[in-house]
């Protein structure tokens, strides 16, 4: 059984949308294919009739400043994202997260669109985008809209995107002075090597106070969410041990950490959340000086 019959390479968004709606079904978008190809090859996903390759769609390949935003096309290979001076300037967390995805061969094709659309609760690129308050640009036959990233998830591996919808790109606020972001993750090299926990954080610093902060942790629950309670604790506070401890308490109170066999217990994740929060917060704090 062939995994697909037809392979389409539209060059612009409207052609891509057209292909999604009118090519013989089942139709699937393919970007880097680093998730999709494995799902097809390993039978986690039934063979499709049509693959719509979006990596040559010009709007989805763009990476530029647009007005007061940084625009990152959903199909820009992650290696290009992390090598981009614009991203390095405005979205350090995304650089750090992207650099950890797979190896160079994977990063040369993998995309942020795929990372987000695959909808895993701890996808590294996605977690960074959440902390960076990215909006997704979603196109469907009715037009284009901007959606907060967190609206795109229904459950583990379940995206809210409709079959005729396309993630075109992401818009990130530009970094102002005294703002910074950072990302870290803890892996397990022992046994089944899988990420245990990651954490991305953005903050604005007002002298010795945290003026504003956004925290994303993966996996935090079945769908990605921000650690809003922890953010509330930190906002407006100086970065002291006591504040940090309170923030961690708040974070642990709202997190729904699970035990995953052969990977990590919920307890270990709770502990690591503290380690990561302190580390990442410290890094971003210093960067925002």
């Amino acid at each position: 059984m062939n995994l697909w019959k037809q392979y389409l390479c539209p060059k612009n968004v409207s052609d891509a949308l057209h292909a999604l709606t009118s090519a013989p079904p089942p139709v699937s978008i393919i970007a880097g294919g680093t998730d999709l190809m494995l799902d097809l090859q390993q039978g986690h996903r039934a063979p499709v009739h049509t693959l719509v390759d979006v990596t040559d769609v010009s709007e989805m390949k763009a990476l530029e400043i647009r007005g007061d935003e940084l625009y990152v096309g959903a199909a820009v290979p992650i290696n290009r994202v992390v090598a981009s001076p614009l991203v390095q300037e405005h979205a350090q967390a995304l650089v750090e997260a992207g650099s950890l995805i797979g190896g160079p061969q994977v990063r040369n094709v993998a995309t942020l669109g795929g990372n987000v659309a695959h909808a895993l609760p701890a996808a590294d690129g996605m977690i960074a985008l959440v902390a960076l308050d990215a909006r997704a640009v979603v196109a469907n036959p009715d037009g284009e809209r901007r959606v907060p990233l967190l609206d795109l998830f229904l459950g583990p591996g379940k995206s809210a995107l409709q079959p005729d919808e396309l993630l075109v790109g992401f818009c990130l606020p530009l970094r102002a002075p005294h703002q910074a972001s950072a990302f870290e993750r803890i892996m397990r090299t022992q046994g089944v090597a899988l990420p245990i926990l990651n954490l991305a954080l953005w903050l604005a610093r007002d002298d010795d106070r945290i003026a504003d902060v956004r925290i994303a942790v993966g996996p935090f629950g079945p769908t990605p969410r921000r650690a809003l309670a922890a953010e509330d604790v930190l906002r407006g506070q100086p970065l002291t041990g006591a504040v940090l401890a309170q923030a961690l308490d708040a974070l642990l109170g709202e997190a729904r950490f699970r035990t995953s066999a052969y990977r990590a217990t919920a307890d270990y994740r709770r502990h690591l959340a503290g380690v990561l929060l302190q580390d990442v917060l410290q890094t971003a704090w210093q960067r925002a000086e």
């Binding site: 392979y7 389409l8 390479c9 612009n12 292909a19 090519a23 013989p24």
Partner: peptide, 17 residues
């Protein structure tokens, strides 16, 4: 059928139509 797309996606014509 969108003409631009035809130009863009030369692989698909046969199946597509």
């Amino acid at each position: 059928m969108n003409e631009g797309m035809l130009a863009a996606c030369r692989h698909e014509e046969a199946f597509y139509r």
